[in-house]
Amino acid sequence: MKELLKNKKMIYIAIALIIIIGIISIFVLRLNFTLMYSQHTRINVFLGKNYDLQEIKQISQEVFGNEEIIYQEIETFHDSIAITVKQATEEQITNLDTKLKEKYEISSEEEILQVNEVGHLRGRDIVKPYIIPMIISTLIVLAYVGIRYLNLGILKTIFTLFLRLIISESLLLSIIAVCRIPIGIYTMPVAILLYFLVIIYSVIGFEKKLAKRKIEESKK
């Protein structure tokens, strides 16, 4: 029992430490975002003829090297494509233009590239649509938990679930910040998944405690 309590204490200390380090790293190092979520350059390529994605990928890699590149089809005619890179210099753009024109036999006078400097997506803009639904649903769930597990202590159950939700989401954010995991399209689904799991885990725990309490009361 003592060993268990000691282990629990160690886990709590570790969680608190990770959260503190996470908060510090958010302020000092800021969060890391994926290519699509950070400021990037999108080059729209209008070839006017069918392209081969492998050829486009090869040319892009020759121009931009080992940088991360995202390819998106423009419209559905398979004759234009958007190439997204972190940054593109004038030289790289000219180089890309030349190589694509050579490959697809396009006249040098034709303009086939359209370069856009796309701004970053702010962290608060990503989270904003989820705040109100999460607050409303959390309040409803807390009210339900308080009523359903009244015998376990209304404040205790509400506080336990609320604390678990806050700590689990803070822990996730801290791990993302400390490990420099880029925030992207998969971040919110993971946060929501964690939210659901914590609620299920807590409710199962409360159910077990309630059942135990009922057995104890019936014994008395």
């Binding site: 109100i132 639904p133 409303i136 409803i140 769930v141 339900y144 659901f196 609620i199 299920i200 409710v203």
Partner: peptide, 28 residues
């Protein structure tokens, strides 16, 4: 009975999310 107790909070969340005017949230 056991699963109704466990899933009822999730059902409450599901209904709340469904009525939000934001597709990614409503979809969940």
């Amino acid at each position: 009975l056991k699963y109704i107790s466990i899933l009822f909070p999730l059902l409450l969340i599901a209904i709340t999310f469904t009525f939000m005017n934001w597709i990614p949230v409503a979809s969940i």
